[in-house]
Simulated assay, not measured.
Amino acid sequence: MPVHNMHERVLSMGSEEAGALLDSLSAGTADRLWPYDNWPPMEFDRPLSAGAKGGHGPVRYTVAAYVPGVWIRFTFTGPRGFHGFHEYAVLPVDEERTVLRHTLSMRVSGLARLSWPLAYRWMHDALLEDSLDLAERPARQARWSPYVRLLRALVTRVH
């Protein structure tokens, strides 16, 4: 089953400033793009670079390609049944505006044919909107659906 999912936000900043957000990924408390306060942190086995292995929570991936300040692509290694990638791209509009886009493109197989539409998709969408909210200045407040709140409560009880 193919999945193509995109989230983007027009930011009121130049591409260099937006690129700095991208470059801050997985830098712990200095990360200005990943909403680590509300979601499992993005962690890697080494600094952000091609070949770095890591992920967040049960979602695992390898940095397939990285152009600092411009684009980063992660290839899925888990969970089982996720075959594809997700990426962030910094797309200049003009000197004062930039589009920050996250794209997920994958094929799901096996149990992921159920887990993606029933759970992962909803959590993914909420996490990405939180990430883009964080990129905006001032940041917006999270607006999770009742279903996302239920899924988060279930995950919290399991862990």
Rank of each mutant, 00 (worst) to 15 (best):
V3W: 03
N5G: 04
E8C: 09
R9P: 02
L11E: 08
S12H: 14
S12P: 10
G14A: 04
G14F: 00
G19T: 03
G19F: 03
G19I: 06
L25P: 02
S26D: 06
A27K: 15
A27T: 15
G28V: 04
G28H: 09
A30I: 01
A30F: 04
W34T: 02
W34P: 04
Y36G: 12
D37R: 13
W39K: 09
E43M: 14
F44D: 08
F44H: 12
F44V: 06
P47S: 03
G51M: 06
G51S: 09
H56L: 08
P58K: 00
V59W: 05
Y61P: 02
T62W: 03
T62K: 07
Y66G: 01
Y66Q: 00
V67G: 05
V70R: 15
V70I: 09
W71S: 14
W71A: 14
I72E: 03
I72C: 11
R73A: 13
F74T: 07
F74W: 13
F74R: 07
F76N: 05
R80G: 14
G81N: 07
F85L: 08
F85V: 13
E87C: 13
V90D: 04
V93P: 05
E95F: 05
E96A: 15
E96F: 14
V99W: 02
R101G: 04
M106F: 03
A112Q: 06
P117M: 05
A119V: 15
R121D: 11
M123K: 04
M123D: 04
H124I: 00
D125R: 08
D125K: 00
E129P: 06
L132V: 08
L134V: 05
A135P: 06
A142E: 09
A142P: 05
R143S: 13
R143H: 12
W144N: 05
V148Q: 00
V148S: 01
R149N: 11
R149H: 11
L150H: 06
L150S: 11
V155K: 07
R157F: 11
H159E: 12
